[in-house]
Nucleic acid binder design. Structure first.
Ligand SMILES: [Mg+2]
Length: 309
DNA sequence: GCGACAG
DNA sequence: ATCTTGTCGC
């Protein structure tokens, strides 16, 4: 079962007359970081009569949001004999439910990642670079509509497009910080099976080792697909950005904040994913950068966005 | 209270 | 990412 259905089934466990919180549901999924994703999944709830998202409130007892209007959330709570006083659940600690039956799916996924992590190499597995691919996914407004993944393969020397492909699929996994790979890797796997040219290097819109467990999208994509992979993120996820633009944690240098030109206000954050060094990652991104994002990624982003159904 | 939170 | 149903730590 997919994580969205799993989340809805967790919410269905809440007994009559009880409420729970976005964070508590996230912890039942296996990681408090999913709290906002729980909120989003509640927001996208297709049927408020069969999945009682009105039972989910903020961790401090305030009501949180409701797509059908907060008055309707209050009405549904009162029908369950849950009183709302001054925008808060009355006797919140007494009606708070946190006894979910769960197998903590996010913890399972994290364990799998920690096992896979040993396979990461930060040495170049290639001797020359002739083609570089960029990969990105564009999402529709509703998580139940079809998303579009795109890959653009370019010649490293002429910087011309060699091949482009798109794939379509429903989104099966919400966006949860540090779990991006489970949302986007399925699109990349489909694309890799579809292309004629196997690129020498892959670039993804996300991080490599610049990640709390040093195993971001670029690492897992590289290991899974057995391809040298660079992470190029628009925002920092993990690590401290030093004055000299190197990104570090207590252990090591993780990546580099790269400004494509003096016109660019914000950097991209480069970190190696797999079968490539940080130094080579930076050199390749630099060579392919005309604007903020390196060309294969910039074009993959445009292709995915413009191909949305 | 404000910022942090890959997409 | 899209246009918003979060939580924690400083
Ligand atoms: Mg993206």
């Amino acid at each position: 079962m997919d994580l969205i259905s799993y989340t809805y089934d967790l919410v269905r466990q809440i007994p009559p007359g009880r409420v729970s919180t976005y964070g508590a549901v996230a912890e039942a999924l296996g990681d408090i970081r999913a709290a906002r994703a729980v909120g989003r999944m509640m927001n996208q709830n297709p049927n408020a009569d069969t999945m009682p998202c009105y039972k989910i409130v903020y961790s401090d007892g305030r009501l949180g949001g409701f797509g059908l209007g907060i008055e309707d959330k209050i009405r549904r709570l009162r029908e369950d004999n849950i009183e709302v006083v001054d925008g808060r659940i009355k006797d919140f600690d007494k009606v708070f439910f946190n006894d979910f039956k769960t197998s903590y799916p996010l913890k399972k996924l994290r364990r799998q990642q920690l096992e896979m992590r040993d396979k990461v190499s930060l040495n170049n597995s290639f001797t020359e670079v002739n083609t570089v691919a960029g990969f990105d996914v564009a999402y529709p407004k509703s998580d139940f509509d079809t998303a579009c993944g795109a890959i653009v393969i370019m010649d490293y020397h002429s910087i011309e497009v060699v091949e482009e492909e798109v794939v379509y699929s429903k989104t099966m996994f919400p966006y949860i910080p540090t779990y991006l790979v489970f949302r986007e890797l399925p699109f990349l796997e489909k694309l890799m099976a579809k292309i004629d040219v196997k690129p020498d290097i892959l670039m993804v819109d996300g991080n490599g080792i610049m990640h709390p467990i040093k195993f971001g999208l670029a690492c897992q994509a590289g290991v899974t697909l057995d391809i040298p992979c660079i992470g190029v993120a628009k925002k920092r996820l993990y690590g401290k950005v030093r004055e000299d633009n190197w990104v570090v944690d207590d252990d090591m240098i993780l990546g580099y904040a790269f400004y494509a030109s003096y016109k660019v206000r914000k950097p991209v954050y480069i970190s190696p994913g797999h079968n490539i060094s940080l130094e080579s990652s930076i050199n390749i991104v630099k060579k392919l950068s005309r604007f903020k994002n390196p060309e294969p990624l910039r074009r993959a982003h445009i292709l995915a966005t413009s191909s949305l159904l």
